[in-house]
Amino acid sequence: MVRTYFLLAWTWTRAAAAYPASFALMVLLGFVAAALDVAVVLIIFANTTALAGFSREEVLFLYGAAGLSFTLCDTFVSNIDRVSQHIKAGTLDTFLIRPAGAWVQLTTDRFNPTRAGRVLQAAVVLGYAIAALGIGWERGWMIPVMVATGVVIFAALWTLAGAVQFVLTDAPEVTSAFTYGSNQLTQYPLAVYARDLVKGVTYVLPLAFVNWQPGLYVLDRDDPFGTPGAMRFLGPAAALVLALLAALAWRQGIRHYRSTGS
């Protein structure tokens, strides 16, 4: 499965690299477009020294950690969004008769390597924040764990969004509000949001485990909402549960798929 994935991704990469100038430009523009969110953070902190009790470097740390997870998924999984087009056009049939998993084929469908610019941007911000905050290994070991947790959570979200499109064929906007909305939500410390919203993204949709709960551990801070310290380490478990749910939903979706077209 992993081998198939990279084989397919590499095929699309070679296709995209056939126009090198356009390829380089798109990577660069992706980098610039993603940097806008950082510019917003910097402008906010040009006007204040703390946002909901968090300093500029701390916000950038949370932003970078979530951004790295999200952009990795945006590169490697988000192509599954296109499943609704394939369902409508009836082209999903061709995916199903090929001797490879439908999920692997759909996540690499028109794989777009130019999104690497966004990944790079998030990694740069995260690296800067870690250096500026002087985070050492005694708490920094959590950072790779939280990025991996975030990748699993976002990948599961995209898979769920894809599975939902078997039912709501015509509503990719509804599901993208969830996937891209999650990205926007995790860019800032959850302390800025209302208590009920934070409860929702902790216990219902476990977005708080992408960067907030483990991030509090790395930054050595107490949760302003008063959750117990053990919550900081529940991320991988929450991600696993969500991934299992997503896998089940996806299988159900595929199983109930009825072809369209003539």
């Binding site: 006007n47 204040t48 946002l51 909305g181 926007q184 800032y188 949001y193 209302a194 919203l197």
Partner: peptide
């Protein structure tokens, strides 16, 4: 959805700096 999230960030900023930008 996006508007609500944006609103919370702006509220947090204006709570830290009331009267900012008029």
């Amino acid at each position: 959805m996006f508007g609500v999230l944006r609103a919370y960030v702006l509220i947090a900023l204006w709570q830290a700096r009331p009267g900012l930008g008029g």
